Simulated assay, not measured.
Amino acid sequence: MATASVYKASDQVYDYICSKCEEHDLNAEAKHFCPECEHYLSDKCVTLHNGYHSKHTVYGRGDIQKWIGFFMDRCDQHGNKLEVHCDHHQELNDRQCSSISHLPDLARGFLETNEFKQLQSSVDKMRRRLYRVKNARMKDHIALKDFN
Score class of each variant (00 low, 15 high):
residue 139 K to Q: 10
residue 86 C to H: 03
residue 30 A to T: 04
residue 12 Q to K: 15
residue 124 D to Y: 04
residue 143 A to I: 04
residue 25 D to Q: 11
residue 134 K to S: 15
residue 120 Q to W: 06
residue 91 E to K: 10
residue 25 D to P: 00
residue 136 A to W: 13
residue 51 G to P: 01
residue 36 E to A: 04
residue 7 Y to S: 12
residue 121 S to F: 01
residue 42 S to Q: 06
residue 65 Q to Y: 14
residue 111 L to P: 01
residue 113 T to Q: 03
residue 43 D to G: 13
residue 123 V to C: 10
residue 25 D to M: 02
residue 105 D to R: 02
residue 60 G to S: 09
residue 80 N to L: 11
residue 7 Y to G: 07
residue 139 K to C: 01
residue 74 R to T: 09
residue 35 P to S: 08
residue 106 L to W: 04
residue 128 R to T: 06
residue 116 F to N: 11
residue 81 K to Q: 10
residue 105 D to T: 12
residue 41 L to P: 02
residue 96 Q to A: 10
residue 91 E to N: 04
residue 118 Q to D: 08
residue 24 H to K: 15
residue 14 Y to H: 07
residue 101 S to W: 02
residue 54 S to Q: 04
residue 68 I to T: 12
residue 113 T to D: 05
residue 134 K to T: 11
residue 35 P to Q: 10
residue 104 P to H: 09
residue 23 E to Q: 15
residue 41 L to M: 08
residue 18 C to T: 05
residue 106 L to A: 07
residue 8 K to V: 04
residue 18 C to P: 09
residue 103 L to W: 07
residue 43 D to R: 13
residue 81 K to T: 09
residue 140 D to T: 08
residue 38 E to N: 12
residue 32 H to T: 06
residue 16 Y to K: 03
residue 93 N to L: 03
residue 115 E to G: 05
residue 138 M to F: 14
residue 60 G to L: 10
residue 1 M to Y: 07
residue 140 D to A: 14
residue 27 N to G: 03
residue 23 E to L: 13
residue 108 R to G: 00
residue 52 Y to S: 11
residue 77 Q to N: 10
residue 81 K to R: 12
residue 5 S to H: 04
residue 107 A to D: 09
residue 62 G to I: 04
residue 92 L to C: 08
residue 109 G to S: 10
residue 20 K to C: 07
residue 96 Q to R: 11
residue 126 M to D: 07
residue 55 K to Y: 03
residue 53 H to A: 07
residue 75 C to K: 01
residue 12 Q to Y: 07
residue 131 Y to H: 14
residue 138 M to R: 15
residue 47 T to P: 00
residue 70 F to D: 02
residue 44 K to T: 05
residue 85 H to R: 06
residue 70 F to R: 10
residue 28 A to W: 05
residue 18 C to D: 15
residue 26 L to N: 12
residue 38 E to G: 02
residue 135 N to H: 14
residue 54 S to R: 09
residue 6 V to E: 13
residue 106 L to M: 08
residue 120 Q to D: 13
residue 137 R to D: 14
residue 130 L to S: 04
residue 96 Q to E: 12
residue 69 G to D: 03
residue 110 F to W: 05
residue 119 L to C: 14
residue 11 D to K: 14
residue 59 Y to T: 03
residue 56 H to G: 02
residue 117 K to C: 02
residue 16 Y to H: 13
residue 122 S to L: 11
residue 52 Y to F: 07
residue 37 C to F: 07
residue 116 F to I: 06
